[in-house]
Amino acid sequence: MSWRRKFLLGGLVIAAALSWVVYAGLRGSMVYFVTPSELLAQGGAAAGKAYRVGGMVVEGSLDRDLPTLQLSFALTDGRATLPVRFRGTPPDLFAEGRGAVVEGTYAGDGVFLASTIMAKHSEEYHPPADAEPGYKELMRTLLKPGEGEAAK
């Protein structure tokens, strides 16, 4: 095969890959996570299958059992609520009222068994109300744990 043809082929592969990414994405078939209502709408067909589910952690639903590291909470998208069980330590930003994406399997009895929790954060950045800007603040917060509200 001549260089020109190899090259054309390579260019075509790249162009095809890029356009597939856009096409598949716009059609919605390349989904990073499903919402609780999408998962629950599948009913029994979803049982035993692996999913990534994203939603907000319902206020007041978070229950931790520290000795066993058992965690249970509910994820919601505003329409449906999915109870989730997890064992381990969640990321620092994981909290009630915040977004989270969980990976795991749907147990079928209405409970999602998560093996990984990922916390989502918003696109907003601002200093805490009590912050004094500058170097001293950095040293203080580095030396003393429990800085942001995330650490609560």
């Binding site: 930003l93 954060h121 805490p128 109300a129 800007p133 603040e137 950095l138 942001g148």
Partner: peptide, 10 residues
Amino acid sequence: WAPRDAVQGN
């Protein structure tokens, strides 16, 4: 100079 973030911290 930049303040730390309220949610994420340093």
